[in-house]
């Protein structure tokens, strides 16, 4: 009986510890990704704007929303992930 209670308590402690570790990892990842966002994407965003790159096709002067596609070999197409 005592043994069961002990192992139950131990399991609870272990679970809480794992939860705390996971929560800590989430916070750490969020901090890291925020830093990457502002320190890496920030300058890149500035550069794309200076170069006039229209990443989201916002330009009003466009006459069509279609982008023509170049033909690709189907076998080749299936090989790549990008």
């Amino acid at each position: 009986m005592n043994k069961t209670t002990d192992s139950g308590a131990l399991a609870r402690v272990r679970r809480r510890f794992a939860e705390a570790v996971r929560a800590g990892a989430r916070v750490q990842a969020a901090v890291l990704l925020t830093a990457v966002y502002f320190l890496v994407l920030g300058p890149a965003a500035l550069l794309t704007r200076l170069l006039g790159v229209d990443l989201l096709c916002r330009r009003r002067a466009a006459k069509t929303g279609w982008t023509e596609r170049a033909p690709r070999d189907p076998r080749e197409l299936l090989r790549s992930q990008g």
Binding site: T34, Y37, F38, L41, G42, A44, A45, T48, L55, L56
Partner: peptide, 11 residues
């Protein structure tokens, strides 16, 4: 690219 295009509101 979407995040870049909408910086800084896409954090």
């Amino acid at each position: 690219a979407g995040c870049l295009g909408t910086f800084p509101s896409s954090a």
